[in-house]
Design a protein around this nucleic acid. Structure first.
Lengths: 234, 234
DNA sequence: CGCGAGATTGATGGTAATCAACGAACGTGG
DNA sequence: CCACGTTCGTTGATTACCATCAATCTCGCG
């Protein structure tokens, strides 16, 4: 593993408070894998053999049902995923695949469990991580149940702009079809929603989005901290 | 506190593995409160002072946005709630109110945090509890994004029947309007969906639901373990 | 017995999915 | 270097699903 990676992982909330030797015990048996884009890392329904940490690239968690498919989350560096299934040793509820070329750390489930039992700081960190993940899905559920699709899009734009540049402009970090799936709509509907937002202070050129009239956009979006605000990360 | 309550709480996954003295330290400073129906226990946006455990009755977690409102979860005995906000000391994302007359145990946040730091078994139990809660919301999100409203209702009926009697009949445990909100539809739409299910092996009389043709109902519902199956509870 | 909350039913409109066709961007091979 | 094909996105037409508004019904309870 690159030393830059090791440092970055070490600094994750999940590992930050561990003793050095414990951290080593966790990371030594781990694999660092590189994946091309659009590769499935695991299928839903399997008890996971590994806890994953995305170091580079992007991972999509998605679910299929009948002939429908939807994106549950898109993970960007540096985040863990399928922690809950690892902790409970239960089947993962989603499948996972790369969107971009990605580097992923894979820590065997048994190793995680050993650390969970041995190290109280680690157990606490896992509790924090899961609490954060839980809150984030609740926000997603609220967004889905309380907003129309164009409102979800508008709020996504506002949030993305604050995360990235704050210069009123940014690029969509993946396919529009993936964005549509993330936001719970069809690609066609996403197109139309972008067209609608044209009348509310948004310009779209390819993947580039520019906010020309933030007050107008905010008026339509009605952002709500209890739905949109990312945690401070503890 | 009634000794039957104490025993029941003691046996919760969250507390089961604690040493006796730790459990006492947690429960001694707690309050046992009795609430009438339709009383708000806490409002969204506040950092919670207590971790709640519902011992009797039913609690609804709900969210408002603009002039819309939806039910995020209904808690029945014996479950904890707003654990994630307590663990992270962050504002709760939902408000909470009683549906029925309820008895609720309230454990001060500080006390929970002390136990979290002191007791590895408790920290692990919290991680498990949060993992379970996380998975449950992910299932809800999948249901919401991948199913139509009549499918959600059909699956809810199947699930409820297996949980309660398995004699093909049960009572809806709350108002139909609450059920509608839980399932993400309007009361009017719930009515129509019940009417639709009449043609698929379901009879409804007031709050009583009887399944007369399970294969037919299953054919419409297409239940999916990764959406509908409750955890074994560890 | 009559009131009132909850539930149902009907009529209508809006939101979003689907089906279909077209257009733009990109990569490949001739 | 350009023709071609493929993929992705857009646009249009239509349908399905669901919300809303309004009226009526039911039933528990004072």
């Amino acid at each position: 593993m690159r030393s830059a990676d090791a440092a970055a992982i070490r600094d994750l909330p999940l590992f930050r408070d561990m003793a050095d030797e414990r951290f080593d015990a966790l990371v030594q048996p781990a694999f660092l894998q590189r994946f091309p884009p659009h590769v499935v890392l695991f299928e839903r329904g399997q008890v996971p053999d590994f806890l994953y940490v995305v170091l580079e690239g992007a991972i999509e968690l998605f679910a299929r049902h009948a002939d429908r498919e939807t994106t549950i989350a898109v993970l960007r560096p540096i985040s863990t995923f399928i922690l809950a299934a690892v902790v409970k040793r239960q089947p993962v509820l989603t499948s996972g695949r790369t969107l971009d070329p990605s580097r992923v750390l894979m820590i065997p489930t048994d190793v995680v469990h050993r650390a969970l039992g041995d190290d109280n700081a680690f157990a606490q960190a896992i509790a924090f991580e899961l609490a954060e993940a839980y809150r984030s899905v609740v926000q997603e559920l609220k967004s889905q149940k309380l907003r129309t699709s164009v409102e979800r899009l508008a709020n996504w734009i506002i949030r993305e702009e604050t995360i990235t540049g704050q210069d009123g402009q940014f690029d969509i970090p993946f396919d529009k079809r993936t964005l549509a799936s993330r936001l719970g709509m069809t690609p066609e509907n996403l197109s139309r929603n972008f067209a609608t937002l044209t009348r509310h202070g948004v310009e779209v050129h390819g993947r580039t989005i520019r906010i020309t009239d933030m007050p107008s956009l905010v008026r339509l979006a009605v952002p709500d901290p209890l739905i949109d605000e990312a945690s401070t990360g503890a």
